[in-house]
Structures are given as C-alpha cells and as structure tokens.
Design a binder for these strands. Structure first.
Lengths: 354, 354
DNA sequence: TGTCGTTCTGCAACCGGTTGCAAACTAGCA
DNA sequence: TGCTAGTTTGCAACCGGTTGCAGAACGACA
C-alpha cells in the first residue's frame, strides 16, 4: 500500500479501464470490440465510442496469447550481399536470380495485403543449411506462417516446412503437387509475348538465352518462345537455343557462342535483364548495333532497365500484385487449410532495345 | 474428465511441462532459461539440457506480455511504386532519393543486427499524412520502437514520434539537436573523395550537380567538393555548381545549362547515380565522350551502376553497416534511453566513367 | 401466474510466461 | 547448540486479453 500508484486515473490502457468507465465487465468490452453478436448493439456502440474517444488500442500481445495466434507472418530472406551471393559466402543459395527490387515490390504488396486482413509482416533471415528457424518462429508463437521466394530457399527448407506441417506459400514454384500454396509468374506467356514482339518487328533469327535448363521457369519461357515462333510460321532452330546462369559472364559466353554459330542472328530473347545487358555488351563488342542489327528483349524489368543504353525492352511481372496474392493465399491457408496455385500475368515493357 | 486429453504426454510446449519433467517449479525453469543467478548452476544446466533435448521453444508472446516488451521493432516504409512515387500517388513523399536496393541492404543489416540482440524486424507501411500508425503499433504493444529512413518520412512523422515519446532512429538526418538517434552517411567525405578522384586523374573543370540545395546532404557533399578543390589548389568556380532534383529530367537540364555556360567542363560530380546517368546521356547527346572528354562520378552505387555504359564510378555507402548501426542505436535507446549520432564512411567505387 | 426460450451480461478460468516475497536449506561463526 | 547471512527454491499474483458456462432480464405463451 506504499507504492505510488502512478496510474493517472484517466489513461486508458486496458479493456478493464474501459469496462470501469462503461460500467460493464471486461468480457463485454472484449466482445464489443470484437464485433461479437453476444452484446447488444447499443452496448457495443457505447463501448466503442468510449474506446474511440480515449484513443484506446487493444494490447495485441495479450490477444495473441489468448487466441493462440500471432497474426504475424514471416517473409524469409537471406542476408543481402551487395555484389550478389557467392559460393564462398556462408548463406549462399545457388540460382539467385531475383531482380533485386522485385523483392521490394513483392514486400510492398505483401505488407499491404496482410495489413488489409489484420496481419503484420516480419522479415527474417534464413540460411541455406539451417532449418532451425522454422520451429524457432513457429513454436515460439511469433508467427503463424511463412512466405518464401524460390530464389531464396532450398529444397531442404521446403521439405522441412512440409514435414513440420508449417503453413507457408512460395513465390516462383508451380508445384501443384505439394501441400503448400504457390504464386508464380506466367513464364510461358512471358516467353511468348517477348518472342512475338521480336517477330512482329520483322526479326526471324531469334536466339534464346535461358536460365539453367533444369529450372521449370526456363522451360516455360522456352515453351512460350517456341509457341510464338510456330505461330508465326518460323521453325524452331534448336541451335539458336542455349542455357546459362543468371550472370553477366555466363550470358556473354552464350552470346559469343551463338554468334559464332550463326552470324545472321537478328534478335535475342534473354531470360533476365542482367543477361540481356551482358548480351548487348557482347553484341557491340562484335560490331553489332542494338537494336538496328540485333534486337534484344530481357526479363524482369529491374530498376535501371529504363536507364541502360539503349533502354531495355523487357518482360515485367507485377511484384506488388504477387505480394498481394501471396498474402491472400497464406491467409486463406491459415484460416481454411486450403492450398492453391495462382500465376500472375507477364507484361511486355517496350523501350528501345527491341 | 471425458475430454480426450490429446496431449501426447511427451510434447513439451510450455515451461510447466519442463518443470514437471525436471521436478521443479515453473519459476525455476523460467529462471534457468533466462540465465538468472537465482538458480544454482547445476539446476540450470539440468533444465537447459531437458529443454534442448525436447527442442523446447519458449512462447514469445507470453513472455512479451509478462515483460511488457515485444522485442520487435518496426521499419517504416511506404508503399513501393515501381516507377517511383509521383505527386499524384496517395502516399507521395517529396524528395525521394534512396537508391532502391539501398533499402534492401539496410534491411539486411538491420535484421541481422536486431536478431543478434534478440529482436525481430517488422515491416510496416506508413503514409505521409497519417500518424495513427504510431500509437497503433506502440500502444498495442506490437513493437518497442521504430526505424525510419529520411526519404520515407516527413517532418510530421518525426514530430509526432517525438511528442509521443516513441523510441526511434532515423537514417540520413544529422540533427544532433533532437531527442532521437540518427545514423547517416558521411556526405562530406563522400563529396571529397569523389572530387579528389577526378582531380587526381588530371581533371580541372569539375562541375557539381547536387540534390535540392536546402538539404543538408547536398550541402555536405558540396563542402567536400569544395575542400577537395582547394586542397588541389583549384579554385571553386561557383558557376560550375548547380542543384536540382533527383530525377533524370532535372539532371539533364542542369547538365545542359552547365555545358552552355562552360564548354570546357572535363568532369562532373553528380549527387546520385540516376543524375549521373542522365548527365552522361546529355553529354553524349552533345558530342562529348565519357570518360575521355568528360569524367563522371555518381553517388549511391545503385544495383545496375556496374552495368551502365560505361560502368559508373560512384560513391557507395555500406547499407548493411547502416542497418547494423541503426539496430544498435535503437536498442541502446530502448535499454538505456541514450540517443546518439553516428555516421558511416563513404567509399569510392572506381569503374569506367571516371 | 408459471414456464420456457431468447438475448444479454458477468464470473472466473484460462493462455504461458515473469517476478516479489517468503520459506527452506546450507554454511559460518560465536 | 543457537543465531545470522547467503543461497536456492516455490508460491502465487500478476501481464491483458478471450471464452465456456451460468444466470439475469425480458417477452411470449399456455
């Protein structure tokens, strides 16, 4: 009884304070603020008015504890390496191919989508070899589920999540055969429209530089490429098709090989902007003008694609939309257990390289 | 007594379970897992071993409720606009100048720094006109503090945070006169080394294209520029100094004006990579070769600076380091109330444009 | 007037940790 | 042996919500 009792009576911090003011019980306040049908409409309004008037914010932690759900989902990222991950870096994940700002776009849509449904976004860093983060975040009740990007995660992660029964969604995988939801870009359509654009401008010898050929994404883009060619009554010349890594070195090498095989190439469809830019450098080094002699289309529409020389024509996927869909899928999964698979449209951004 | 009691006895979910196994009380388990001196070393080890063995993860929510701190901090971002914020977009914040991937770098360091000290990173979106998010996140106990980036926040936000007494740190402001911590790049040093590099390669007519001249950052870079010139016994010619917006249009215009005034310009120091790239375009349009006739240095080292034509020499600030320092500052503030001001070094990345 | 069904409200027991305080135990010392 | 101080431990009351269940209030109907 000696403690100062610093609570200056009017600061409304808990539902108990509101209950006192309204002359009802905590339970009623809780129900009123949660839109329960177990309070009369007038009581509910009266309580809400009091809460509003006092700028009351309910304690989310207590609520989470009680409800046994945090209303937070985690986006798994890996430590960002300014100059790209390398084999020697601890968290190296092979096949990194995300256009850097794409993550930012996705994150934006994700945050917005989650927020709209009462969830918050936690960003965590994971490492290729470790799967401890799963139970560290799930069992501790910090998050209800995860969002992964195919470029930032390994098969190991996906398997661990699946066996653990963790709710999660993945961007960029179209495995309809799994117990998790996916959202991905329509690579087939992307490949098709990119190629069609080149054909429409009169090109006939269109080379294809893909990402690693074992990846579904590269295959889908190739299918789109082939479809467009056939639709234009241009045969698919397999010797114009090549696969490499998403790096400038690899792309230059592929471009070089292609030119040696076929000096008559008049267009290139590269599966990433970085590859496209490298291809342009190589083409120029060998005396070709872009786009006059050879038109080039990239993929991703990274930030500076608009400022390269020449500005790059490329295929873009709406990151914010992807994020929004990831949010929707995950929340649906959390609430109903249903998994789904969506793909978002690819859009051609025409600039000057083709 | 009829309920199925599905708890398959061995699933250890709470400290009570561990207490039962260890034959001690909840209190003792709590103390053991928190490294309290109020448990004997051997009891502590025994309990920790049990916890480890059962893969126990303590419920973070309950802990937060009890401790009245969430161990989460929020990074305030604004909805990402793929093509840059525009006046007409709802969340428009003037003066956006962040190199896009810089946010990602900062976020990476921030997440790592926070994690190392037991905190998690929440990403929230705020709007220029709204300040409701402050109490929405703070009063609800979801987060303990905020991290802002000067480009993503308005004075209004800072003031609201200050009057509200919210703990927060800001990147990119060096207001030593405020009640919050700051971390920023060493713009003075950046301006100096960029200019020195140009002078060292024999250039003497070095133009300066700054960001908005009312910004501290632009002023600091100018001071660095002037210092380098004087150190090389080259006078500062104010007519070579100009300020604009961080946009291609603005930069082109400035470059054009400069060339009209001085056809003998042999170098340009631009205060952002986007400006530098625009300047290069303008220089070329007027028949200058880069870097042969005019050398150009940018600022920021955005993602594709390495892939522009020619690859851009620029000044970079280590984003991950900035993030780490932001984490440290904020946590220090949370724990001790102390505010501080740090600046991180600027580093010249020499490529081919200068 | 008695009984029953609705609708609304409150009691109190959770959720899973933390922590002040008292008690038990040990050792040291007169 | 008795007393004090220091170390470990447990009890129980929190933190601030949610929710099952019992009961009150009220109108309807017999």
């Amino acid at each position: 009884m000696l403690q100062p009792v610093p609570m200056t009576a009017d600061r409304v911090k808990t539902i108990a304070d509101i209950a006192r003011i309204a002359g009802v019980s905590k339970a009623t306040v809780s129900r009123a603020l949660n839109d329960s049908t177990l309070v009369s409409a007038e009581t509910r309004e009266r309580i809400r008015e009091i809460a509003r008037h006092h700028g009351f914010e309910m304690n989310a932690t207590a609520r989470s504890l009680s409800r046994r759900q945090s209303n937070v989902v985690a986006l798994a990222t890996y430590p960002y390496e300014p100059f790209g991950p390398s084999e020697s870096s601890p968290g190296f994940i092979p096949g990194d191919k995300l256009p850097d700002t794409f993550v930012l776009e996705v994150m934006s849509g994700l945050a917005a989508g989650l927020h709209a449904r009462g969830y918050d976004l936690l960003v965590i860093q994971i490492e290729a070899r470790d799967t401890g983060w799963i139970s560290r975040y799930l069992d501790s009740g910090r998050v209800d589920g995860f969002v992964l990007m195919s470029a930032n995660c390994t098969l190991k992660h996906l398997e661990a999540l699946e066996t653990r029964g963790a709710p999660f969604v993945v961007w960029g995988l179209d495995s309809t055969s799994h117990a998790y939801s996916t959202v991905s870009g329509d690579s087939y359509a992307g490949g098709r429209i990119a190629t069609k654009h080149l054909l429409d401008s009169g090109r006939r010898r269109v080379a294809f530089i893909g990402g690693p050929d074992m990846e579904q994404e590269a295959q889908d883009r190739y299918r789109g490429y082939a479809t467009a060619l056939r639709a234009a009554n241009v045969g698919v010349d397999e010797s114009l098709v090549t696969y490499g890594w998403y790096s400038t070195e690899s792309a230059k090498l592929r471009m070089q090989e292609l030119l040696e095989r076929h000096s008559d190439i008049d267009a290139v469809f590269a599966c990433s902007d970085v590859m496209a830019i490298a291809a342009i450098e190589e083409l120029r080094a060998r005396g070709r003008r872009v786009p006059e002699d050879v038109a080039v289309v990239g993929y991703d529409d990274v930030a500076l694609a608009a400022h390269t020389d020449p500005p790059l024509t490329t295929v873009r996927q709406a990151g914010p939309l992807a994020g929004r869909l990831l949010a929707d899928s995950l929340i649906q999964q959390l609430q109903t257990g249903a998994v789904g698979h969506v793909s978002i449209p690819a859009e051609l951004v025409v600039r000057e390289s083709a």
